[in-house]
C-alpha cells in the first residue's frame, strides 16, 4: 500500500510517500495511523492531533473509520487551504 503525506504532515514525517505493509488487524484509517505512530517518534509527532488530519483513499475523501482493505493509495494531509 502506498502512503502519501502532504503539507506540514509531509514535513514532519520527512518524506512525501512510502510503501508500507501494515500488520494483520490494521483494517481502518484510524488503525493505520495508530500503527504508524508506533513506528518512530517523527510519526507520533506528525499524528499527535488526529482531529486536524484528513484522509483520502484511492483519491477519494474518506474518514478515519473507513476500511483500508484493498486500498492502493492512502493519503494523509491537513485540512485543505486552496483557492
Amino acid at each position: 500500500m502506498k502512503l502519501l503525506y502532504f503539507a506540514w504532515l509531509r514535513e514532519r514525517i520527512g518524506i512525501g510517500s512510502e510503501d508500507v505493509s501494515p500488520p494483520e488487524g490494521v483494517e481502518t484509517v484510524a488503525a493505520l495511523v495508530d500503527w504508524l505512530k508506533t513506528r518512530e517518534p517523527r510519526y507520533e509527532h506528525a499524528f499527535e492531533r488526529t482531529e486536524s488530519i484528513r484522509v483520502a483513499i484511492d483519491q477519494e475523501q474518506a474518514d478515519f473509520s473507513a476500511s483500508i482493505i484493498g486500498a492502493r493509495e492512502v493519503a494523509l494531509f491537513p485540512p485543505v487551504t486552496g483557492g
Binding site: V80, T81, G82
Partner: peptide
Amino acid sequence: LKTKAPFWKKETTPDGAQWVDA
C-alpha cells in the same frame, strides 16, 4: 473548491514560512 480540493498554502512572512490554517 476551497474546502474540497487538495491544495495547501504555505506563506513566507518576516516570521518565517508557515502553513496556512484552514
